[in-house]
């Protein structure tokens, strides 16, 4: 019975792990996409935007 409980716990942990890794792959794809888009935006508009509008954040925003 104890083995049963352990087996179940292991399966649950594996499922959680699997879900994490799937999500992680999505994240990596999105990150690649974002990096490409940033470099494209920067190529197209090498000068920083003069508008102070907040709806259009400049490519870099870290202080």
């Amino acid at each position: 019975f104890l083995e049963d409980v352990k087996g179940q716990a292991k399966a649950e942990l594996q499922a959680s792990d699997c879900r994490y890794h799937a999500q992680r792959r999505i994240t990596q794809l999105l990150q690649t996409e974002l990096l490409q888009l940033y470099s494209r935006v920067e190529m197209e508009a090498p000068a920083p935007p003069t508008s102070s509008s907040c709806s259009s954040p400049p490519p870099g925003r870290a202080d």
Binding site: Q31, L34, Y38, R61
Partner: peptide, 13 residues
């Protein structure tokens, strides 16, 4: 993971 995402999104450098 969190650190990497923040870097990509340019919240941090």
């Amino acid at each position: 993971d969190i650190m990497e995402a923040l870097e990509v999104m340019r919240y941090i450098n």
